[in-house]
Design a protein around this nucleic acid. Structure first.
Lengths: 229, 229
DNA sequence: CCAATGAATTTTGTATACAAAATACTTTAG
DNA sequence: CTAAAGTATTTTGTATACAAAATTCATTGG
């Protein structure tokens, strides 16, 4: 019997471009609303227009880039409306991930979650935002892995890309940070109890709180910007 | 004060291609697993490879096409695993749509939902599957419209595209059809009561039942295929 | 006759070319 | 000097070109 051929191959330029551009967009290097200068990017990345344009197409489907016919590409804006639309979806999907995860969680994974929670608390106490973010991301990743649903992971990744940009625009407030740490303790509890329903609800709430904090911060940031102009 | 420029423009070839190809894929004309012959499609649509390849990229991001580097594109397969991954997501998102919709529903929309439900029952009674499907789609669309969340609509559209193909592969069973009609009656009740929580749960169940029926049908279809070979 | 090797062909990824549209820049009439 | 009209430049969408890789086909040795 013949084996399925396993195709291992170097990535096309295109895929590299998507990743690099996504990074630039998510981190805000390419500012929301900015016009995308094809030629400039081509020069910068030393590629021709063909793969660059394909990359822009992909990013447009992801929602990070806006394509206007005959008028080129712009970096998608992060409006309050976008966030308010995205976060309920994020909440529903994270909740689903939580429920699915509870059905599969191994003891080892729960132990890992405990370790991450300790790290979360520790990094918060010493004000190390980078370490906190890493532990935070790892926790969510752990849930996703346990959920064992690649399609769901894909959708969450797309959504996350869209909203993560907003977080790069504002700094988390001290109050919100403390609250987030407390919420993560609840998340761990639910994980330990393998209580999918509760975990789902906590995650949904967690996300909703994130949104509220983010929108508040963005609003005041906008006020600042207005005053300056 | 300057107005925001409103860019109305004819669509690029690319967008037409995406739509046409999506249709061909969803309806099964381009069979799951089939290799995509770029040249053949170029000839058929009378376009060059550039816009066609861009279209394939978009469809790949949507999950309808699988791109393997240096080995070209194939129509994505519809595996049982894909469906089992997609349906819980569909359920969670439809539930969310239902909850959001209940917060906004107008009397006119509820009246429209009643009309659609009557049509649903009628078309079922006379065995008119096309009319039933239309009324069914209209109901879901009504909920989406009321939910008033374009981002959510977009995600649901993508997911729906992926699973709709499976429905073209099997015919709905008489039993499942009757059950679906009954479930739609419950949906209407929840809409009338504007009971978002309940609507969400019903929709989630409705989707879960759909999956079960679909998987069962697919399995037996596969059995048939095996026997034939 | 079959498996393995190598040449011919097709397919794929990327670059370039070119026409049509949009934008920027002049020029000129008021 | 300003505003409109017309011209030049850039940008965009699509087609074509071309090299590298993959596939197919033929050939040869076992």
């Amino acid at each position: 019997m013949a084996h399925e051929p396993i195709a291992i191959s170097r990535r096309p330029l295109h895929d590299d471009l998507v990743e690099q551009l996504r990074n630039l967009i998510v981190r805000g290097v390419l500012a929301p609303g900015a016009k995308v200068q094809e030629q400039a990017l081509c020069d910068q990345f030393q590629v021709s227009r063909t793969p660059l344009r394909e990359a822009l197409r992909s990013l447009a489907t992801e929602g990070l880039v806006t394509l206007t016919p005959r008028r080129g590409a712009t970096i998608a804006k992060v409006t309050r409306q976008d966030l308010e639309e995205a976060f309920p979806i994020l909440g529903a999907l994270e909740a689903l991930a939580g429920e699915l995860a509870c059905a599969n969680l191994t003891e080892a994974q729960i132990a890992e979650a405990r370790r991450l929670q300790a790290e979360l608390v520790a990094s918060h106490e010493r004000g190390d935002l980078a370490a906190y973010s890493a532990a935070n991301a790892a926790t969510h990743q752990l849930i996703l892995t346990a959920a064992d649903n690649p399609t769901l992971s894909g959708f969450l990744k797309t959504l996350d890309g869209r909203v993560r940009r907003a977080r790069y625009m504002v700094n988390i407030s001290g109050v919100r940070w403390a609250a987030a740490v407390a919420e993560h303790a609840l998340i761990l509890q639910a994980l330990e109890a393998r209580d999918g329903k509760r975990l789902g609800e906590i995650l949904k709430l967690h996300i909703a709180n994130k949104l509220e904090a983010l929108v508040t911060q963005l609003e005041s940031a906008e006020e600042e910007a207005k005053k300056a102009s």
